[in-house]
């Protein structure tokens, strides 16, 4: 390529290259947006699948067992999503990832929300950054792309909303009632951990308000359980038994 362009032809040739480059960029961007939408949709389905599994066996089996069944069902679907990311990995290899990050980000966050939900039910803890990154790596442990810190945190922040739903439904599950207290403690911890990070992530600041609202709802559930059982001077299990007998009679 000549160093200084002196003729119309040389300018047009150069700009032809620019056109190809820009078209290529926009096409890739478009493909990634579509893939990200697919990831979002699948992730939402995983979340519903988990809630569904937890509700299905309402009061019929052990709480822990129910959770694990939900987790194992979710894992299959999560694998599908991971394959979608694997498929995208070539287009966002090397320095290209950061060019397209904001197009990939919505799907990625929704995936992290679903993954961390399953993880919580399995381990009762928060999935770590490294574990999320590992789930987005090939068999040899090579990441498909570097996990952005903000996507990780924003995905986790949405988890608290799902946990709120989980806590509210658990009130009508036998034994599952103690679950509400566990979730309450966990979400309280999340809120505190996120609080320290809000100065660095504008969007997290906004989501923190939603988390606070979710926490208040969970606290209300825990309160309602306490108030109710405080009126009678009987151990909680016995109360549960009495209610169950009346309903099933």
């Amino acid at each position: 390529m000549s160093v200084v362009l002196n003729s119309r032809e040389s300018i047009l040739t150069t700009f032809n290259h620019f056109r190809e480059e820009l078209d290529d960029f926009h096409d890739t961007r478009e493909r990634l947006i579509k893939s990200s939408r697919d990831v979002t949709n699948l992730s939402k389905k995983v979340i519903f699948l988990i809630h569904r599994t937890l509700t299905e066996t309402l009061g019929q089996s052990d709480e822990k067992e129910t959770s694990l069944r939900a987790v194992s069902r979710a894992k299959g679907k999560l694998k599908e999503i991971q394959n979608l990311f694997a498929g995208m990995s070539e287009e966002i290899a090397g320095d290209r990832f950061w060019r397209y990050q904001k197009n990939v980000s919505p799907g990625l966050q929704e995936y992290i929300e679903a993954l961390s939900f399953a993880y919580y039910l399995q381990c009762q803890t928060m999935i770590s950054y490294e574990e999320v990154q590992k789930s987005l790596s090939d068999a040899d442990g090579n990441p498909y792309f570097p996990l952005p810190l903000d996507d990780y945190l924003l995905g986790l922040s949405d988890l608290t909303g799902e946990l709120m739903r989980y806590a509210i439904s658990s009130i009508s599950r036998r034994g599952g009632r103690s679950e509400a207290n566990e979730v309450c403690k966990f979400v309280r911890g999340c809120r505190a951990d996120f609080e320290a990070l809000t100065p660095y992530f504008r969007e997290l600041r906004k989501k923190q308000q939603v988390t606070s609202q979710s926490l208040e709802k969970i606290e209300d559930v825990a309160y309602a359980i306490t108030v109710r059982s405080s009126e009678y001077d009987l151990p909680p299990e016995l109360l549960d038994d009495i209610v169950e007998r009346t309903v099933l009679e």
């Binding site: 770590s128 950054y129 490294e130 810190l149 945190l153 911890g189 999340c190 951990d193």
Partner: peptide
């Protein structure tokens, strides 16, 4: 979040901020 994870996050964050 467990302490190790929080540490890890804070390290990443500090590096970016710096």
């Amino acid at each position: 979040m467990d302490a190790q994870n929080l540490d890890h996050i804070n390290q990443l964050l500090d590096k970016d901020v710096e």
